[in-house]
């Protein structure tokens, strides 16, 4: 297989948490030892419940929060130790689309200024006319009318604002785009429009996407591979269709069985039922396997040994569990 575009090894992101007035602050490991490879033209979905670290992982890759340990490399270049001048160069290749489209746009800038700003930063010598031409072309590409170039974000609906956010991310022709819940703030009838747009753009511009979402059906639809996270760790990675057809890790199984399906005859296999309990505190994670406190398969071994990701089922599926295989 070709060398991955983006590669993470043992990445950890920690936040200090005050535990008392005079006590030494504790560390909360929001992302704890994550490995990940993103190949050219690939879409990697990241799923998990709130608090699993999926957004923190995205922010770490983007350099918006520092990684406490581990390595993140893009196109062979180490990002965790580079200077902010180098970061600026990196951002040509690495862009992001955020969840709340309206909040991500400056209300005092016109659409043309918003989409064109990255060009102003990275190609300051570009003639004004040329910049405008490229903004218009990008607007057309994401399904906006080029004659709306002088309008302000509040004049657009949520779906259109997300198109503006996507246009801004793509104007520099990046190689990797991280989409952090790009459709969850949109109405159901609009979500499909944006998902279709992302799939189309990915092919046209040969993008590699990291697609973070809690809507598992959307993630399956758009992703080539899917990574399931729990309490800052990867519990399973597999090809999208394989994962949904046959989830291996007990947490993946519970997560998938909890999806409400728009079919009254479909009875959820209440595997989610055994997911009694609550997400443990990330400040004080369980020993051994992080999922063991809610897992139906857990026993003494799980409390002692932390299972690593290992190949299961012979294919390209990896799960971190002592009892699947």
């Amino acid at each position: 297989m070709s060398r991955p575009l983006l590669s993470l090894r043992q990445v950890r992101v920690s936040f200090p948490v005050a535990s008392g007035l005079f006590a030494k602050p504790k560390s909360l490991h929001a992302v704890n030892g994550v490995n990940l490879d993103l190949h050219a033209g690939e879409t990697l979905g990241v799923v998990g419940e709130s608090g699993c670290g999926k957004s923190t992982l995205a922010r770490a890759i983007l350099g918006l929060v520092p990684a406490a340990a581990g390595s993140i490399s893009l196109l062979g270049k180490e990002l965790t130790t580079q200077s902010s001048a180098d970061w600026q160069k990196t951002r040509r290749d690495l862009q992001v689309v955020f969840q709340d489209p309206l909040a991500a746009l400056n209300p005092r800038m016109t659409v043309g200024e918003i989409i064109g700003e990255p060009l102003g930063v990275h190609e300051p010598d570009l003639a004004k006319d040329e910049r405008r031409r490229r903004v218009r072309a990008m607007m057309k590409r994401v399904g906006l009318l080029p004659n709306q170039i002088n309008r302000y974000p509040h004049e657009f609906s949520g779906g259109q604002c997300q198109r503006i956010g996507i246009a801004r991310a793509l104007i520099l022709e990046p190689k990797v785009v991280i989409c952090d819940e790009p459709v969850s703030a949109l109405d159901v009838s609009i979500q499909a429009q944006i998902v279709n747009l992302l799939i189309k753009l990915k092919h046209e511009l040969q993008l590699s996407l990291i697609f973070i979402a809690h809507d598992l059906a959307v993630v399956r639809h758009i992703s080539d591979r899917v990574m399931v996270m729990y309490l800052g760790k990867v519990v399973e990675v597999a090809d999208a269709e394989e994962l949904y057809r046959q989830p291996r890790h007990p947490y993946s199984r519970a997560l998938l069985s909890a999806i409400p399906v728009p079919d009254p005859d479909y009875k959820r296999e209440r595997e989610s039922k055994f997911l009694r309990g609550e997400l443990p505190s990330p400040l004080n994670p369980p020993s051994g396997c992080a999922f063991r406190t809610r897992c139906p398969l857990a026993d003494g071994k799980c409390a002692q040994d932390e299972p690593g990701l290992r190949s299961v089922g012979g294919g390209a599926s990896y799960a971190a569990c002592h009892y699947v295989g």
Partner: peptide, 22 residues
């Protein structure tokens, strides 16, 4: 109903979106 990707819909196919805005 058509615009929701189902868990057995064809992978990465184009979803039948409702055009326009609310």
């Amino acid at each position: 109903l058509d615009s929701i990707p189902s868990l057995d819909s064809e992978h990465q196919s184009e979803l039948v979106a409702i055009p326009g805005n609310p």
